[in-house]
Simulated assay, not measured.
Amino acid sequence: MLKNKLIFATVAVSSACAFSLPALAGDGIIDEARIGIYDHNSNLAATRHETNNPDINAELLFKAPAWLQWMAKPRINLGANINTGNGTSIAYTGLVWDYNFTDAFFIEGGFGGAIHNGETSRQTASKLNMGCRVMFHENISLGYRVTNNSSVMLTVDHMSNASLCSSNPGLTDVGIRYGYTF
């Protein structure tokens, strides 16, 4: 039931954003929109305990607000990793910092919080026991700017509760994303 609500909410927000994105970007609120595909609960990071169905990632990055300039100008993100099978899906938000090696190559790191539709009290055949509903969310990307507006990124995306709950297996996705900067 929670998965259906999470998917419905993501579709509703995505639809609203799709219609309002050009206006919001033109006003300078939205800085970048991203979409990608992730290896869900990747066995590159650890033994896979969830479905091997991929995740679809969608993310908006907002321009760094003036009140966060003292923190090295992070952008605020809002995103979701929607599993295409019966695995855990998440919605997340946080702060994202960029560092440019050159005009084309960059690295990016993000930290914030997430909520998921996975299990919190038991493990099933397709879902880990995450222990808590609300989690920490981190990601790191290595990117390349193809043009002034387009970039591609290799991303590692992680969610865990930092052992604040009795179970803390964490969930790590690895994948590729495309970003369009307005």
Rank of each mutant, 00 (worst) to 15 (best):
G109S: 11
V146P: 11
I76L: 06
S151H: 02
A25Y: 05
V96G: 09
V146H: 10
T47N: 15
L78T: 10
L61K: 04
G131L: 02
T124P: 06
A66F: 09
T93K: 01
D31M: 03
L44D: 04
V152E: 04
V96W: 01
K127P: 06
G131P: 00
T93A: 13
G113H: 08
K63F: 08
H137Q: 08
I107D: 02
L142T: 03
M71S: 14
S141R: 14
P74F: 00
F136T: 08
A80T: 09
P65H: 04
N53H: 15
F62P: 05
T88I: 03
S42V: 13
Y144K: 04
L24N: 08
A45G: 02
N100Q: 14
A45E: 03
G118S: 04
G110I: 03
N43M: 12
F101D: 00
F106G: 08
T124D: 05
A64H: 04
A45Y: 15
S42T: 15
H116G: 07
V96T: 12
L24F: 12
N57H: 13
R48H: 10
N139G: 12
T88Q: 01
A66D: 11
R122Q: 13
Y144C: 07
G36L: 03
R122K: 14
D98A: 11
G131W: 04
T47G: 15
E119W: 07
G87E: 02
L78G: 13
W67K: 00
T84C: 08
D103G: 14
D39H: 13
M153E: 07
F106E: 03
A125E: 12
K63A: 12
F111S: 08
T51D: 01
E108G: 14
N86M: 11
G110P: 11
N77W: 06
N43W: 15
R34A: 13
C132Y: 07
V96I: 03
V146E: 07
M71W: 13
D31E: 15
N149G: 11
L24H: 09
T120K: 13
N100M: 12
S141L: 06
G28Y: 10
A114Y: 03
V96H: 00
F101A: 02
I30N: 07
G85W: 04
M130V: 06
A91E: 09
I76H: 04
Q123I: 06
F101K: 06
D27E: 12
W97T: 00
G112T: 04
I115P: 01
N77P: 05
N43F: 15
T88G: 02
M71T: 10
D98I: 00
N41L: 07
E50L: 05
N83Q: 02
I30P: 11
S150C: 11
L78K: 07
A64I: 04
Y144R: 02
N86F: 13
A25I: 02
A64F: 01
N149W: 05
M135V: 09
A45I: 09
H116L: 05
Y99Q: 10
E119G: 11
L44G: 02
A66V: 11
N148P: 10
S89L: 05
A45W: 15
F111M: 06
V146T: 14
T120H: 12
G87I: 00
D103E: 11
T88F: 02
L142M: 08
N57R: 15
Q123L: 09
N129W: 03
D27L: 12
N41I: 10
Y99D: 09
T51V: 08
I29C: 01
W70A: 14
P65Y: 03
L24C: 06
G79F: 01
A104L: 05
